[in-house]
């Protein structure tokens, strides 16, 4: 399959749907900051503050040139977001496409189980690691530079802040409960490199995770998660985030019985692709910033 160029990737993002609806539900974390731009030229106009068509064309052409060069890191960043958010699986898509709701099928419910806590913990930690690695790829910083990433994290806004807030809410609080930061941290410190190797996303990403062997890579995953723990705790405290508050805010998009909360994480995991969606937007914006500076 031919590789898609950045203009196509942005233009093909969903302007509505469940992912966007849920992210809008989390808007209270960064009120009004995130605008779901799904058109590359409009994104150029927003990022540059320019509306001249000739200028927009020049920026687009330069952005395409830069994106095409794999060594620039933009392609790799988007691939990382996609890989760790391989959630929009055939299952989720099929489930969303089907509107079947006869009671006779309730017996099938026994086939559905929430993702095991350990698997969810690894997924959450890997999403944090991908955020660090993609940040470094996009901004041209060495891949193990957690310090530079943390400085930038404090200034995250727009779709990047919503992505990180969604990470805390949808991959942390809802599926793992209010003590997820401590729980995941402990789990990572006790797990073996072999357990990490069993995770499909890790196997795809491992060549890009700093460390000479699986033990060092696991150590980086633990260090990466730990480094972001303070930021996540601050977000939870400052916004008073609880499972109830998050559910109340996304309630308009999913009707959920209280006793089914443990299924929600699995459902969101399969039916949304918020990491990829906002990751493409972040990468494209930084690419446009650079392209505009270079024309």
């Amino acid at each position: 399959m031919a590789k898609k160029v950045i203009t196509e990737l942005v233009d093909e993002l969903d302007p509505g749907g469940l992912t966007v609806g849920i992210l809008r539900g989390l808007d209270f974390v960064a009120p009004g900051e995130w605008v779901n731009i799904t058109n590359f030229d409009r994104m150029i106009s927003t990022v540059t503050g320019e509306s001249d068509e000739d200028l927009i064309e020049q920026v687009r052409d330069r952005a395409l040139e830069l994106y095409k060069d794999e060594s620039e890191g933009y392609q790799r960043a988007i691939w990382m977001y996609q890989t760790v958010d391989n959630a929009a699986s055939a299952l989720g898509t099929a489930a969303m496409a089907n509107k079947i709701g006869q009671d006779t099928f309730l017996s099938f419910l026994s086939n559905v189980t929430p993702k095991p806590e350990k698997a969810q913990s690894i997924d959450l930690a890997l999403k944090v690691v991908v955020e660090i690695l993609a940040f470094c790829q996009v901004n041209g910083i060495p891949g193990d530079s957690i310090g530079d990433f943390l400085k930038a994290l404090g200034e995250y806004g727009g779709e990047a802040k919503i992505r990180m807030a969604a990470l805390v809410c949808l991959d942390g609080l809802i599926p793992l409960g209010p003590n997820f930061i401590k729980g995941v941290g402990s789990f990572l410190s006790e797990m073996s490199p072999k357990q990490l190797e069993e995770n499909q996303a890790f196997r795809s990403l491992k060549n890009f995770i700093p460390g000479g062997d699986p033990t060092e890579k696991l150590e980086f995953v633990g260090r990466g998660f730990s480094s972001v723990s303070g930021w996540m705790n601050n977000l939870i405290d400052s916004e008073g985030l609880t499972q109830r508050k998050v559910m109340d805010n996304i309630h308009g998009f999913i009707e959920i019985a209280d006793d089914k909360l443990d299924y929600v994480g699995a459902f969101l995991d399969m039916s949304t692709n918020y990491y990829y969606h906002t990751g493409v937007q972040t990468t494209a914006k930084r690419l446009i910033d650079r392209a505009f500076a270079e024309i």
């Binding site: 469940l18 055939a90 089907n98 308009g252 998009f253 009707e255 019985a257 459902f267 039916s271």
Partner: peptide, 21 residues
């Protein structure tokens, strides 16, 4: 946007699982 009924999702998911498996 119309809220997604969660029990419907579970049913649809079950069906999809059955189909995929």
């Amino acid at each position: 946007m119309k809220p997604l009924n969660f029990s419907r999702f579970l049913i649809a998911l079950s069906l999809s699982l059955t189909l995929v498996l």
